[in-house]
Design a protein around this nucleic acid. Structure first.
Lengths: 343, 343
DNA sequence: CTGAAAGCGCTAACAA
DNA sequence: TTGTTAGCGCTTTCAG
C-alpha cells in the first residue's frame, strides 16, 4: 500500500480511503490512486485490515458433508450472495464424530469469521452453548434452536400436505418410512412424522404403529426388510410416504423388483424433491434448499451489520406437494380384481 | 494473548511459542500456558499471525458450482485433509460469466490464501496467465494445463476401455453422445471422444460421424431429438456410449418410453459412476472425484510447504469400467428375430 | 529456555 | 480533503 501511495504521490491513508470507496477523496486523487493500484496489481490484505477493524470478511458454514444434494444446493445459492456482499465463504466439513468433537473443542472459526451458519446438525445443549460464546452471530439452518436465529422448512406442514394428498387419492392405509440418519445429523424426522399423524387424525383415520417403520439411506437390505414387514401385514398399506426421496426411490425399486406395480398397486410419495425425484418421476413434497441458503445468507449479513437486532428470529419456509407418476388414486375393488387377473 | 501470558506468568513470546508447539519450551511452562489458554478460552487470531508470517492458513478453491456430484465428492474428501493440516477451506463459486469476469479481474483470493485449486474450468490463456501472477501455487483439477500442476483422470483411456467393453460384447455400431456443457465448464469431452475413436480404430470398426452426437445435460427435448437421429439411421446403433451418466440415464428413459428395451435392444454405457448410475443399474466408466480431491489437496499442501519443487507435475488418475445392467451382448440374429416377434 | 522489542499492512482518530 | 500517528495481535529476531 505504501508503494501505491508513493506512486500516486499521496499518503497511505488516502490510498486506504480510496480503495475502501470512502467519499472523502477528491475525484482527481481517486483516479490517480486507482490507476497506481491497478498498475501495481495491488490488492488490500484482508488480514491486515481485519486486524484493525475486527471484522474478518468471512462467513463460516458448518456442514456434515458436501456431497449431499441439500448442502450443494444451499451453498450454491448462498455463495454468490456472500460474494456480492464482499464476503468470503469458509467451509468446515464435519463428517464424523472425531471431527465434530475437535471442531467444538477448538472452535477454529473463532476470530476467523463474522458469522457462522450451522447446517443440519442435531446439536447437544453443550454444543449450542459453546457456539453461543463464539463471539459472532450463529445462524441455525435446517433446524430450530430456541432463542437463536434459525432458518428451516415447515416439516410438519409438509408431511401434513403430503399425507393429505394420499388421503385425497382415497388411501387409508398409509405407511410412513422414517430415515435413520448418521448420528447427530438432523433429518427433521420427528416433525415429519408428526405432520403425517396430524393429517391422518384430521381425516379420522386411526393411527397404526405397524405402519410406521424406519430404515437407513443406502441400506438396501434394511429397506427390503422393512418393506417386507409392511407387505405382510394383515392389512398392508396402499400408499407409502417416505420422509426422504432417496428412501422413496429405494422403496419403488424394491417394489418393482417384486413386481408390485407403482403406483397401480401401491402409491409412493417422497420428501425433498431432489433431482433424483424427477429422474424417477417420483411424487414428492418439495423443499427448496436454495431458498433456505439464500434466506440464511441474508439473515447472516443482517446480523453482521447490526448485531443485537433480530436475534432469536426464526424463518420458516414453505413446502409444496409435487405430484408426479408414483401416486395414483386408490384402485377401486373391481380395478383391484382386474389387476389380480392380469398381473 | 497478553491475557494468557499474564495468567501463566510468562511473556507473550512464550505463549506464542507454546501454542505453536515449538519444542523450545520447558514442559512445566508449557503446561501452565496451555491451562491458562484453556481457561481463558483463547484462540490465536489467524489474521494477526498471518500478518507477520505471510501465510494465511487458507486454501482457496474455485468451482463452477457446488450442487454437482463431482464437486461435492471432491470437496468432501479435500476438506478433512486440509483440516488435518490445519488449513481452512475457502470456496469461490463462479456460476456464470459475470462472476467469472469479476473473479479474474479482482482476484479476491490474492493475499488471502496460500494455494488455489481451480476445478473443471476451460480457462483462456489470459486467465491462466492471470493466475500465474497470483503469487501462490495454483493447482488445476480435472483439467490439464501445460507446465502447471494438474490433477485429472485419464479420460482417453477411460473412454477407450468403455468402448472396448461394448466391442467385446459384440457391438459394432456404437454411438457416442457428447455433452455440451455450460460455456467454459470443462467436460473433458474431446479426450473422451478420442478414446472412443481409438478403440474403434483399434478394432477395425470404421468411424462414422453420424454416430457421434451432442446434447446438453437436462435438455430432454434435445436428447430425444439426438436419439431420434440415431434411431433413424440406415444402420442404427446397437449401443450408445454417453460421456456422462446423467445423459446416459436420460437416453435410457427416452428409449424405454419408446419401448426400446435396454439392454436387450440397445446397450447404454455412461461415464462417471455417480450415485445415479447405481440407482438406474447403469453400466458406466467410473472415475473417483474423491481420489481427485485428495490428490489435489496433497499436492497443494506439498507446494505450499516447499514451493519451487514439483511445479508442472501432472497427476493422472485411472478409470475403471463398472458393468451393470444396461450393457449386454449384441443380440444374435435369431434373438433379434425373437425380440421382434414378442416385443 | 525465556523475555524485550521491532515490526507485519492496514485503519481510525486526530490535526492540519 | 489530506497527512500523521498510534496501534490491531501476533511472530521473530536478538539478548540474556
Amino acid at each position: 500500500m505504501a508503494d501505491v501511495a508513493e506512486r500516486a504521490g499521496v499518503s497511505v491513508s488516502t490510498v486506504s480511503r480510496t480503495l475502501r470507496g470512502l467519499s472523502t477523496v477528491s475525484p482527481e486523487v481517486r483516479a490517480r490512486v486507482e490507476e497506481a493500484a491497478r498498475e501495481l496489481n495491488f490488492a488490500v490484505s484482508r488480514q491486515a485490515a481485519s486486524l484493525v477493524t475486527g471484522r474478518t470478511g468471512n462467513v463460516a458454514v458448518l456442514v456434515p458433508a458436501l456431497d449431499a444434494w441439500f448442502m450443494g444446493s444451499a451453498l450454491s445459492s448462498l455463495a454468490p450472495l456472500l460474494r456480492a456482499a464482499g464476503m468470503e465463504l469458509n467451509v468446515y466439513v464435519i463428517p464424523d464424530l472425531a471431527e465434530r468433537t475437535s471442531f467444538f473443542e477448538r472452535l477454529p472459526a473463532r476470530r476467523n469469521a463474522d458469522a457462522l451458519l450451522v447446517f443440519s446438525f442435531d446439536l447437544t445443549d453443550e454444543e449450542t452453548t459453546r457456539l453461543d460464546n463464539l463471539g459472532m452471530p450463529v445462524i441455525y439452518v435446517s433446524q430450530h434452536v430456541d432463542g437463536r436465529p434459525s432458518v428451516y422448512v415447515d416439516d410438519v406442514a409438509g408431511a401434513h400436505f403430503g399425507t393429505r394428498h394420499l388421503l385425497n387419492l382415497g388411501h387409508r392405509r398409509i405407511a410412513f418410512v422414517q430415515t435413520i440418519g448418521a448420528s447427530g445429523f438432523s433429518f427433521s424426522s420427528n416433525e415429519r412424522l408428526l405432520g403425517y399423524q396430524q393429517a391422518l387424525t384430521e381425516a379420522n383415520v386411526p393411527l397404526d404403529s405397524d405402519l410406521v417403520v424406519a430404515t437407513q439411506v443406502g441400506d438396501k437390505r434394511g429397506t427390503a426388510e422393512v418393506l417386507g414387514k409392511l407387505l405382510s401385514l394383515r392389512e398392508p398399506p396402499t400408499a407409502i410416504f417416505a420422509e426422504q426421496d432417496e428412501v422413496a426411490v429405494a422403496v419403488i425399486r424394491t417394489l418393482r423388483k417384486t413386481h408390485i406395480a407403482v403406483p397401480e398397486r401401491i402409491s409412493v410419495l417422497g420428501f425433498d424433491d431432489q433431482p433424483l425425484a424427477d429422474w424417477f418421476d417420483l411424487s414428492t413434497v418439495a423443499q427448496s434448499p436454495s431458498d433456505i441458503g439464500r434466506q440464511a445468507g441474508e439473515l447472516a449479513l443482517k446480523l453482521i451489520a447490526d448485531s443485537g437486532t433480530d436475534h432469536g428470529r426464526h424463518i420458516v419456509l414453505p413446502t409444496i406437494v409435487i405430484p408426479r407418476a408414483t401416486t395414483a388414486p386408490l384402485p377401486s375393488p373391481q380395478d383391484e380384481q382386474e389387476v389380480r387377473d392380469h398381473p
